[in-house]
Design a protein around this nucleic acid. Sequence first.
DNA 1: ATCCCGAGGG
DNA 2: CCCTCTGGAT
Length: 214
Amino acid sequence: MAAQLDYLTIKEIFLRFQAEEAEPKGELEHTNAFTLLVAVALSAQATDVGVNKATRALFPIADTPQKMLALGEEGLIQHIKTIGLFRNKARNVIILSQILVDQYGGEVPSSRAALQSLPGVGRKTANVVLNMWWGVPAQAVDTHIFRIGNRTGICPGKDVETVERAIEDNIPAEFQHHAHHWLILHGRYVCKARKPNCPVCLIRDLCPFEEKTL
DNA sequence: ATCCCGAGGG
DNA sequence: CCCTCTGGAT
């Protein structure tokens, strides 16, 4: 775990991210709150490219919990069986759809407690929906953010709860809302798990990490 | 700590 | 072959 960076260094990092991309977006395709929730749930241990490939055929016929229930678990499996963990995900999405219809008027709830009570929706997925749909400054810690937080020292921690708190404590308020996508995209395309591309990194001079190969 | 679990990259 | 991908439930 890298030592925590100081405040001015972290601020400079996010100024550079902001200069490069002022309004970073996630890459999971969706058309409404329900399809966002489903897409995020499907994205566990899967790439967004793989999820989008499946949802481009799925969402046109099942973009509401009612339509998802009409499609049914077996029908859903046929759409998502190219995604890892598809059996658990299909079961969760069907049960979750039934709960939305029965308890939330077919709408996606806006509280973390309600979101996390849904099957297949944990803290990370709930935080993504809160941030992206409801505009709540919730910090979702996924594999990318956990890795980068520790490599760079922006938000280090030995578990996701610690990293989530470090994000809230260390990142200046004006960057909190977009921090999630800046860090995700940096992790996906530059600070990759297996072969980080340090030579093209925007914050190389501020980062204590250098991959030791050889 | 373990299971779930396909696709893509190296 | 092995590792990784916007994790969650038991």
